[in-house]
Nucleic acid binder design. Sequence first.
DNA 1: TATGAATGAGTGTTCATTCAT
DNA 2: TATGAATGAACACTCATTCAT
Lengths: 216, 216, 216, 216
Amino acid sequence: MIPEKENNRERILKAAEKIFAEKGYDASRIDEIAANAGVNKALIYYYFQSKYSLLEELFRRFFQESAAMLVSYVQHGGLDSTPSKKADQIFDTYFSYFEEKRDLLRIMLVESLKTGGDAPPIFKLVDFEDLVDEATITSIFDSGHYPSNNMDLRLVAEFFTGVIPMLCYVLFQDHWCRYFNVSREQLRSYFNQAMKLTHEAYHRAMRDQLSGESPR
Amino acid sequence: MIPEKENNRERILKAAEKIFAEKGYDASRIDEIAANAGVNKALIYYYFQSKYSLLEELFRRFFQESAAMLVSYVQHGGLDSTPSKKADQIFDTYFSYFEEKRDLLRIMLVESLKTGGDAPPIFKLVDFEDLVDEATITSIFDSGHYPSNNMDLRLVAEFFTGVIPMLCYVLFQDHWCRYFNVSREQLRSYFNQAMKLTHEAYHRAMRDQLSGESPR
Amino acid sequence: MIPEKENNRERILKAAEKIFAEKGYDASRIDEIAANAGVNKALIYYYFQSKYSLLEELFRRFFQESAAMLVSYVQHGGLDSTPSKKADQIFDTYFSYFEEKRDLLRIMLVESLKTGGDAPPIFKLVDFEDLVDEATITSIFDSGHYPSNNMDLRLVAEFFTGVIPMLCYVLFQDHWCRYFNVSREQLRSYFNQAMKLTHEAYHRAMRDQLSGESPR
Amino acid sequence: MIPEKENNRERILKAAEKIFAEKGYDASRIDEIAANAGVNKALIYYYFQSKYSLLEELFRRFFQESAAMLVSYVQHGGLDSTPSKKADQIFDTYFSYFEEKRDLLRIMLVESLKTGGDAPPIFKLVDFEDLVDEATITSIFDSGHYPSNNMDLRLVAEFFTGVIPMLCYVLFQDHWCRYFNVSREQLRSYFNQAMKLTHEAYHRAMRDQLSGESPR
DNA sequence: TATGAATGAGTGTTCATTCAT
DNA sequence: TATGAATGAACACTCATTCAT
């Protein structure tokens, strides 16, 4: 009831997200996270096992929240029935979600680029199988409308020419504006045009292929 | 001509590139680079100012080499005159170059994602102005054929829907194959299709727009 | 009568004894003792002043129990009147008591070896003056039968050639069996022979000296 | 040639020996060892892998030195041919060596009392097989003169009724004097008497058994 | 050029102990 | 009595960097 009296655990996570995003995981210091959360350093180890488990908790929450968002989005009839509008909607939704979670996504991309570990966490952005039920996935990707033998192609295309460009746009836009001396609005407009000409072209091609495959 | 001597500096750089690629910049240790180069740790500081300047030198060489490659490519008449074939050629050339320099590009992307510092080094992949002469740039991007008021759009599109997808493909392909259980060949084929349907569509659109703009 | 209640203090002490014995005092952690006792960590500080006072309480109880054992042993006429048999009896009694309290004795010896603090607690093993009444001491050590001017010698001899070897035997027997590849029974037999040939020889000598001193 | 310009490595080891002996291994702090050696803390890690490897090096040197001492002692005709005198000589030699190495022996006994690890290092005090050649061992223990089937008994007796009492005497003498209010000389005299009456009795018994076994 | 030795400033983590309730 | 949360002071160990030769 007292939203000000936020849990210290939450404050720690929020601080970690901020510091990790600013400096990268490796260069982030527990001391700084503690200071930023206004908390004793040892308290971090009261709530979390290690520096890395802070990161894991952030990722865990992100994917949990993403899944919840997708489900609620679908259930509340958010999706238009016209395929092209549907794609637009999904695009916009993703876009604002990416903007909102920019800091965490930055960390996630960096961690995904480390060769050593497990699967890059970023793959989960297009692979929700263990996060969301079958029906939702079907509804979102509308996979019934796509040539069924092209599931893998779909995944590859969505990831490398849809998610990745959007993600990198979100992560690099500020630097880009400064470096190339454009306004955010201009850049956004360019990026939208580029996506229309590329990724949307792909969606159109997919639909065409489909209607050619099973006409009438 | 005495390859054994005089090349401690090179051995250090080679070792740095290897260790950086294996562990990422932050997690790499000067000790390990020295050991890997078969050289005393202090010698690294004789040749280089700091750990970071090792990275800078690697980046510097990379861009220098890229530029040289571009120039020689253009000069030796490598580029076909048909626009669509030309694009294909550039695509393939970039592709194999990215594959070859994958390790360094991985580090470069990670460093580019850090918010603190200067301009992301990765922007240089589409901004050769201070690396290559005007004529070469013109020749490569054939910018004369593009609507002149769309230079910025061109840059945005090339970067976010061309370079970035290709780069991420090169960096993530191994993990993708393992995670989604596809062969490298299959994945490559999917990726090529996706790029054809997206980035190439953009190039086509650009040419169409151009011929519409200045017909006859 | 409600054994479930009221005994958190006991549970803590029991857990402390176990953990201390397993890891030694220094390496034992209050957290682990609390967990092992099924009790909140702070409760330990409700019942005890500090980690060290846990140890002190364990030592205190040990000596109290030892004293009680000695007294009851003497009072119930446990001791034979023949000196040599009496010595045997005491030897065996000590032996099994040491075996039983092995873990605590190990800690006590370690603490006794620290140079910094007070008197080594282990000295109390031969100095019961403030634990047991005079009569019992007299009865046990039969000091009336020993040359009165040799009280200190008696103490030294009992401690360094009686108590200490027995204690170390109890503490090292398992490791010895493994290291020298002997069975426990064999080792025990050797040790008994060795003690017969040494410590018992001393007791015999003492008695001889006594009968020579005050014959008839 | 400049004995003052002692190696920092040696200074570190000397300091470690001192601090370990004063506080025990666990309670000793690397910072304090560094300060005591007049050396930067990081230098300790330049010469040694870890805190524990400091201890290992100290033990290694001790046993190496012990072995060298034994060998030189035997080779320089130090040992009398009369068995009883020989035993006395060995006793005295051990005694002064133990006094000299008291600090390290204290640490070694404490470490030997830890149940977790390998074999107690203290066992090496009676098991020189891998430190010294066969001939020296034979000469020292005169094992040819002892009943050959009692080798294990001999080891047990020497360790628990010879080495251990002497060691504990050396480690506890100061505390004993303070606690029981005796002078060092008095205590030493008592201890010598006690050892004569016990351990020496054992040696005598052994010789008697031998002469009975193989007379003439 | 080259190196063995040396160091200041951290670095994540631990732990006995205390506090508020 | 009992507990979840909180903390100060370490602690072993690391690492980029420098120095003397």
